[in-house]
Design a binder for these strands. Structure first.
Length: 276
DNA sequence: CTTTAAACCTGCTGGC
DNA sequence: TGCCAGCAGGTTTAAA
């Protein structure tokens, strides 16, 4: 169940386990890989990167593995040979001397020649990755005010991967909230300060989520929580997302919930008034 | 051009 | 306990 920050952490995890290590064994379960042993046999993983929510595992064979987790795919890394308890369907496993990296459940998997990966139809349409080092607030601002974005509702724009890749449903609610803008507004109707805040927070909140493994609510608004999982943790990850009816941390007004672009969205009517 | 609705894939949860 | 409907942090497609 990943958005950009979670996918980037997965890429980091895979890189730690696989990068520059010999692939000693592999298991190609997914149909699209059945004739692809040559890409893995006797080779190494050169790098693991992500573009939005797509993972790109580059191999020394000159091929790059494209995989997209969608809602349900998941990568697991274990010490080599340690059995893993799961009912999920294994799609792909790469084993180094020390580790096993296994991809479960994902269906969107394909192998590309590295120099042709840009031809992938999904990658071709992506905007800049929100967590890429050269993506900054200025770039987001430029895109917000660009022709194809400025007249669209923020609620729609902030799920569109061609605007900024890696944004997703919880980041949408959180970024709009911290920017004090209403989901129904459009970039062209915001004032200067609002667009600037929005651009800045798009980067800031995404980076915070990456750094904290998915927590966008600043520490000072959260009770001390020991475990990085469980109900208390889940209920205090976000400022507004999944907090319908609960008091806004800034003004105590009940958080609103509705459906926008077929997905849940949350906002504070007091902190995020319409600007039109 | 922009928005909306439905469909698809798989996994998990909650209600009966 | 078992089954099923409904939902999920995603994406594509067609249609309005």
């Amino acid at each position: 169940m990943p958005e950009g920050p979670e996918i980037r952490q997965t890429a980091d995890m895979l890189a730690r386990a696989l990068q520059h290590r010999d692939i000693e064994a592999f298991d190609l379960q997914h149909a699209s890989l059945s004739q692809s042993s040559h890409a893995f046999e006797g080779h190494q993983v050169t790098s693991v990167d992500c573009r939005g929510k797509a993972l790109l595992t580059q191999l020394s064979s000159g091929f790059t593995l494209y995989s997209h987790n969608q809602l349900y795919g998941v990568w697991k890394v274990t010490p080599r040979g340690k059995p893993l308890k799961t009912n999920r369907r294994l799609r792909l496993a790469l084993h180094t001397q020390e580790h096993s990296a296994m991809l479960f459940s994902a269906t969107d998997i394909s192998l590309w020649k590295t120099d042709e990966i840009e031809e992938h139809p999904f990658l071709k349409r992506l905007g800049p990755d929100v967590l890429a080092t050269n993506t900054d607030a200025e770039l987001v601002l430029t895109r917000l005010l660009g022709k194809s974005c400025r007249n669209r509702q923020l609620s729609s724009l902030y799920l569109d991967q061609s605007f900024i890749a890696g944004l997703g449903n919880y980041l949408r609610s959180e970024i709009l909230f911290f920017s004090g803008v209403n989901p129904a507004d459009k970039p062209r109707n915001l004032n200067e300060a609002q667009v600037q805040a929005l651009a800045k927070n798009t980067i800031k909140i995404s980076q915070r989520s990456y750094r904290t493994s998915g927590v966008t609510l600043p520490k000072k608004y959260r009770p001390a929580i020991k475990k990085k999982s469980g109900r208390a943790y889940e209920q205090n990850r976000f400022a507004v997302f999944a907090r319908a009816g609960k008091p806004c941390h800034f003004c105590a007004t009940p958080v609103q919930k509705s459906i926008a672009t077929s997905r849940r969205i949350y906002w504070c009517p007091q902190c995020q008034p319409r600007s039109e």
